[in-house]
């Protein structure tokens, strides 16, 4: 899996703060640019005010730890070759405590077995791979491993995280959203660009 840099400009203009619709303004930062996701969704404020809280809730803090969620988001994004999401969530994965080798493995640059020792995490990644790339039902062997590793609430939530990430992957890739300069700078400093 390779991640082509987002060299093309965004397919739609990113709405700047002075043009932010009234209902979108609470999602724009007081200073500095809004995220490309926010700035693009601002074209349709009635969607933005539903989508951003949804995304924030599903991908943000819940009963599940951030590290587990970032495994799911980064892996899904890498499978879908969404450079915006991979770059953005590589930075988030570092913040969540994932090791550099694990991030590289999730991005498809190294083997999962070597980077993840815990059987539960390997089962989760196998689940993510099948949910993200598969067609139809998830295979029996992967399902059994996932059921052993996760309780019902975890399986529900993490599967929803895969689904939400898939939506964002296709949205960000199709609209060619550019990764923020701050994220690109950080990834360059970390050697993970």
């Amino acid at each position: 899996m390779t991640q082509a840099a987002a060299s093309a400009p965004s397919l739609v203009p990113l709405v700047e703060a002075d043009q932010a619709p009234i209902l979108a303004r609470p999602y724009f930062p007081a200073a500095g640019p809004a995220s490309p996701l926010t700035a693009s969704l601002a074209h349709v404020p009635e969607i933005l005010e539903v989508a951003l809280p949804f995304v924030g809730r599903v991908l943000g803090p819940t009963a599940l730890d951030a590290r587990t969620k970032e495994i799911v988001v980064l892996r899904t994004s890498a499978l879908m070759e969404c450079s915006y999401c991979v770059q953005t969530h590589t930075a988030a994965a570092l913040d969540s405590g994932l090791a550099r080798a694990q991030i590289e493995a999730l991005r498809g640059e190294a083997g999962i077995e070597e980077a993840f020792a815990a059987a539960g995490e390997r089962a989760l990644i196998a689940w993510v791979d099948e949910v993200a790339l598969g067609r139809g039902a998830v295979g029996e062997e992967v399902t059994v491993r996932a059921r052993e590793a996760m309780g019902d609430p975890e399986l529900v939530e993490l599967t929803l995280v895969v689904g939400a990430t898939l939506m964002l992957n296709r949205y960000c890739t199709a609209l060619r959203l550019p990764t923020s300069a701050a994220t690109l700078l950080r990834l360059a400093e970390e050697g993970l660009a």
């Binding site: 709405v15 043009q19 619709p21 009234i22 209902l23 601002a42 349709v44 404020p45 009635e46």
Partner: peptide, 24 residues
């Protein structure tokens, strides 16, 4: 087109933009 005073792209049913405008 300026969008700073855009309420919604949805205009039908009218209740949707009307209620969004009311919230504002």
């Amino acid at each position: 087109l300026d969008t700073d005073l855009l309420v919604s792209r949805t205009t039908s049913p009218l209740r949707e933009p009307a209620e969004a405008l009311l919230r504002i």
